[in-house]
Design a protein around this nucleic acid. Structure first.
Lengths: 248, 248
DNA sequence: TCAAAAGTGTTGGCCCTACACCCATGC
DNA sequence: GCATGGGTGTAGGGCCAACACTTTTGA
């Protein structure tokens, strides 16, 4: 079915079950191939991309809404979610739905609550829905053309991620259970958008005492096989409470 | 006029001009008398206190709404505002309006956007409105009995303030233009809820190079007159961008 | 055997803690 | 002058950047 038809059909039901004027948009981060990636979908018949989003049922809170929306996209439950900002500008939609009647659900003014999500790349199975014809991971270096204000939602998510790096279990949620020190460093470098000194990063991480060194190493790559680590999640959470670079 | 009458009268108009299901609540911090204080109002005829709040006009964004709400309470413009969380639980109101008809504006389910505000205590003139019979500063040590979930909104605001102490111009917005080092330290100690070493605080602040030492001191108190300082706001803002305790 | 990556050692500087000392002020 | 609080000195330790060295691996 074509885009317009579907939109109009969904509209009637939406008024009954969702809270009006309110939406949720998710910036889903995944780490793979030494690259930080974001989940994006393409609107059917359009060359416009969108962040996965949805609306809030009258019977659920925001976190439940975000979880439901992401589950329908990724098949993953218990995803790490963090609200970061409400986008409330008057003209957010930029006239995308001008051609539709005013009673269309989508044509309302929406205030959108932005969440960022951290997922283990390998645990996700992307799911298409009926208003999109693509659902993909894109490197944050090569983002597509976003609809509405989704580009600024993404930007704000990344800035927030950077600021919270010392206060939220970001490494734990983005990396697979076992990982190497260079992989962890690369993740930090991408989020912070700056190079870090290898030896110093190594020792700093060890000094935090939040990692468990495993009796294995990552074979197969060229050159020396790096040791594998996993987070000592209890110590990690405890350290994060104070902030990894304890300020005061 | 009594509380119930006023509420019902305002309800009809509210449906026309505000976005439904959405409210704004503000935790307004002020620093005075070596104490961190919060602005609270008391509901007419009830022994329940509330944070100043309001609704979002169909023609304004969230920041404009918060500014309008605070202006009507304090007469102050350009207040420093920071959104920190949306409160979206299903039973937030706790049945406060059970006795009213279902068409009452206030009886809707509300998701409330929490802002904290930082104001210079001396620049504020408290204003009562027609559903409150008191509007006061209360020390954060002696908070009154809050209605609904306002206590947890306050708690979250304070925690957020603490976390952002190194990233937002909190000192600048809470203190008067000129202040002494002990005053600044006291502010930090209250927000962090811990004692700090005097000499080390003093030098750490100076090392940040964000303060301008003035050629005056605070006379009148007993004992030695402390020097007065003011923020070098340009350097302060610049330092905050990296975080005062630069992490990486 | 060689290049490249991973792990470890080393050094000097800065900041942090803790505590001590002196100075200014009002009683 | 004395108590109190504000400004400054100092010694020891830890973290940090920068760089060098060693080890391990696949080609």
């Amino acid at each position: 079915m074509e885009f317009n038809k579907i939109i109009e059909e969904k509209s009637a039901k939406a008024w009954d079950i969702y809270i009006p004027n309110l939406s949720v948009d998710c910036v889903v981060f995944g780490f793979h191939d030494v690259t930080l990636k974001v989940l994006v979908t393409r609107l059917k018949d359009k060359d416009l991309w969108a962040l996965p989003g949805g609306y809030v049922l009258k019977t659920e809170n925001l976190m439940e809404a975000a979880n439901r929306i992401l589950y329908s996209r990724t098949g993953a439950e218990n995803i790490y979610l963090q609200e970061f900002k409400v986008f409330s500008e008057l003209n957010r939609s930029g006239g995308v739905f001008d051609e539709f009647p005013d009673t269309l659900w989508n044509k309302q003014r929406f205030l959108s609550v932005g969440f960022y999500a951290l997922v283990d790349f390998h645990q996700v199975n992307l799911v298409m829905d009926d208003i999109s014809d693509a659902c993909e991971w894109k490197s944050i270096e090569e983002l597509p053309n976003f609809m509405m204000d989704h580009r600024s939602i993404f930007d704000k998510a990344l800035i927030t991620l950077r600021k919270q790096l010392n206060h939220k279990p970001i490494g734990y949620n983005l990396l697979p259970e076992k990982f190497t020190m260079p992989e962890l460093q690369k993740l930090y470098e991408i989020i912070l958008a700056k190079k870090l000194n290898r030896g110093n990063f190594y020792r700093k991480m060890l000094r935090y005492d939040i990692l468990i060194k495993l009796d294995e190493s990552r074979k197969g790559g060229a050159h020396k096989a790096p040791d594998l680590y996993q987070f000592d999640i209890e110590k990690y959470e405890k350290a994060l409470k104070e902030g990894l670079n304890n300020g005061w």
